[in-house]
Amino acid sequence: MENNGWSEFEIGAMLRSFEGPATNIATTHTEDRNYSASNSFTASVADWRIEKPVFNKDYCIDCQFCWIYCPDMSIISRDKKMIGVDMDHCKGCGICVEVCPTNPKSLLMFQEQHDDEVALAEWPEKETKEK
C-alpha cells in the first residue's frame, strides 16, 4: 500500500479488511481468506524480534497452550494439531516457550540469526527430576 503524507489523510477513514465480499469469516482460516492490502495481516513485524521461537514437533503433545496464549496469532494450529509458527507476525515475546508443558520443551527461543536446523540438532535432552 502506498504511503500518503499528512495532507492527504482523510478526516474519517474506512478500511476494508478483505477484497470483495467476505462471508463466514469466523469459519474461514487465514489461507482461504482474500485479504486486502489494508489488512495488517499483509504487514510484518518480524524485524521486532531479537529472539525467535523454534518449534520441535518431536516433543509436541498438541496441548495448544501456545495457541491460546499467543498474543500475536502466530501459532498455526489446524485440525487440533500445532503445525508451526507464523514468522511474519511473531514479535518474539517468548510466552509460547514459557507455557509449553513438555519435557524438554517443544518450543525454545534462539537468537534471530540462529539457523533452525542447527537449533533442532542441539535441542536439549529430557531433564530428569532431582529426587
Binding site: S17, I25, A26, T27, T28, H29, T30, N39, S40, F41, T42, A43, S44, V45, W48, D62, C63, Q64, F65, W67, I68, P71, D72, M73, S74, S77, R78, D79, K80, M82, D86, D88, H89, C90, K91, G92, C93, G94, I95
Partner: peptide, 20 residues
C-alpha cells in the same frame, strides 16, 4: 482447548501492541 484451537482468528497479527 484442542477443539477451541480449530477457531479461525478474526483479529490479525502485525498489530503494534507490545510483545507479550
Amino acid at each position: 482447548l484442542k477443539e477451541f484451537s480449530t477457531s479461525a482468528d478474526r483479529f490479525e497479527g502485525a498489530n503494534l501492541l507490545c510483545p507479550g
